[in-house]
Amino acid sequence: MLSELQRTELPADPMLPRPYRIQRVRRELPGTFTWELAPANGDLPSSFEPGQFNMVYVGGIGEIPVSISGDPANPEKMIHTIRAVGQLTRAMETFGRHTVVGLRGPFGTPWPVDEIRGRDVVLVSGGLGLAPLRPAFYHLLQEREAYNRIILLYGARDPDEILYRDEIKQWRRHLDLDVEVTVDSALGRWRGHVGVVPELIKRVDFDPERTTGLICGPEVMMKYSAIALINRGVAAENLYVSMERNMKCAVGFCGHCQLGPHFVCKDGPVFRYDHIKSAFSVREL
């Protein structure tokens, strides 16, 4: 009876990376860089949905989850923005063009960009949290007529830490986008907002009844941004957050990324806020 089990050909091994070559390296900020990658064997890269991530493998050193920050309509450029904080990412920072790394993916749940057509969309991001949101923002821009108001709120530590600065400047010139940037602290030259991101939520105009919030950044920032949106009258079920845990297998086998009953790798990283709320209220969950 058991011999019939999985008798058919075994499917592709989700644990096996594919070689990708770095086509371009862009230094974003001190210690933060962006890779543009393409399959080293000339294959087409996998298509992806905004909010998904890849596992990036560096030979003999290790593997980490990295969100995809490119344009989902342009998947031949696989874009990853990485901050050098540990042994692996510091090694990655030294890699130049033509270096080959391993990629598995894409994995995980996307931002619900299609389900929220017709609505006001508030994207709230902090620090490197703009990277996983950028594919969603690209999608909204491409399908601009399908949405009502589009608001991007972004917070950085100081003016020198603003990620994708040139793009943000371009977006701010659009007449059909609200793009607001705040910094935790700044010298006198800075003409923009100073303060935390949730404060920006109070300043912008949207219709809470028909608004969806997409939030990505440090957990404490996501928590207070969600509270600020709820206080403005947005329903908790219309808020989405992207969670970060230590995904090792990315397919629900290894158990590392569990958050309450969820595997962040496959039930997330994008969660509806009311489904994951205990993660923000219970310590060490």
């Binding site: 058991l2 011999s3 075994l10 499917p11 091994d13 644990m15 397919v251 629900g252 086998f253």
Partner: peptide
């Protein structure tokens, strides 16, 4: 966990089917 998930663990599947 290993067979009836979205992904299949190939090693587990290979060992399990002839058990």
């Amino acid at each position: 966990v290993f067979l009836e998930n979205e992904h299949v663990d190939s090693g587990y599947a290979a060992r399990r089917r002839d058990t």
